[in-house]
Simulated scan of single mutants.
Amino acid sequence: MPVAPPRPNAPPLNALRAFEAAARLGGFAAAAEELGVTPGAVAAHVKALEDGLGAALFERHAKGVRLSALGHRVLPEFTEAFDRLGLAVQALRAEAAPGTVHIATLPAIAQLWLSPRLPALRAAAPAITISITAMEEPPDLKRAPFDLNLFYRPEGEGRVLAPDEIFPVCAPSLAARLARPEDLADVPCLTDSVWAEDWRIWAEAALPGAGFAPEGPVFSLYALAVEEAVNGAGVLMGHGALVARHLESGALVAPFGPRLRLGRDLSLWSARPHRPGSPAARVADWLARPGG
């Protein structure tokens, strides 16, 4: 009679993923946000994993959790394993749906830089489907299912599409009231909540020692702030790449300088090299072409 010894049960993949994310990110709440579940679900997965192992992976405290000695020792291998799994899944998706290119980008870049280029891109490559996901922070491309990442990054990182420089912009009708930076005290200044420091950074260069503070409405969407600037609602701190088309059309003007570099670029990058001639490589080349 053949012997069939009992096999030890392997830990569930979801539990291992919950442990790795919580250990790498420093807590259950951050892991839950990355994994798209609740912190309670992450905690339950980790507890079940610990119960199955008979050993603690985290030490619980009133202010949160921290890795146990065992958790510290095994984390690097799990992180490497899930990174490799994520890249393998990306390769599988690329082979299974080779005509679709997934792009992650900031909402403002999606609306003001990328969207106006899509009609020409579709005309140049009609067989390629472009999928765009707008998010406030770059995803971990080793884990997330995106082929291309389009965000502002420190200078020299990724494939540079445009430098990030800021300067005041407004409708031509409002520009007639502005002769010098000091005149900004007499008009509404529009502020984007994400880039709220733009005015301070620019004013330190243009109005040193003046203690200038913008007064005017604050917007949670930069594209909406741009539209309001076009409507004549006030002066906006423009990001060169995002307002370039409005400047070219005359809908916005730059009444005065300086144009200030922020030490970062609008950059395109990916987690793995794309095969030359593949849809992702073609889209990246098209977006990076001069005048694109």
Rank of each mutant, 00 (worst) to 15 (best):
Gly54Met: 02
Leu75Pro: 03
Gly27Val: 10
Pro2Thr: 11
Gly40Trp: 00
Phe167Leu: 14
Thr100Asn: 02
Thr191Trp: 00
His45Asn: 14
Thr100His: 02
Leu190Ser: 10
Asp183Gly: 09
Ala120Phe: 01
Asn231Gln: 11
Phe58Tyr: 11
Arg264Gln: 15
Ala120Met: 01
Gly240Asp: 06
Gly232Arg: 03
Asp192Asn: 09
Gly40Lys: 03
Gly277Ser: 05
Leu25Gly: 12
Ser68Asn: 05
Pro217Thr: 11
Ser68Gly: 14
Pro107Asn: 12
Val243Tyr: 03
Asp198Phe: 15
Gly234Leu: 02
Ile109Ala: 10
Arg261Ile: 01
Leu141Glu: 11
Ala91Cys: 03
Leu106Gly: 13
Val74Glu: 02
Ser173Tyr: 00
Gly86Glu: 06
Gly263Lys: 05
Arg7Ala: 15
Ala44Met: 08
Ala244Pro: 00
Ala4Val: 13
Lys47Ser: 14
Gly156Cys: 07
Thr38Cys: 07
Arg159Cys: 11
Gly263Arg: 03
Arg17Ile: 15
Ala97Met: 10
Glu155Trp: 00
Gly26Cys: 11
Trp286Phe: 15
Cys170Val: 11
Glu227Phe: 01
Ala162Leu: 10
Ala15Arg: 08
Ala241Lys: 02
Arg60Thr: 14
Ala284Ser: 14
Leu75Ile: 08
Ala280Arg: 01
Leu67Cys: 12
Leu287Tyr: 12
Arg245Pro: 00
Leu16Asn: 05
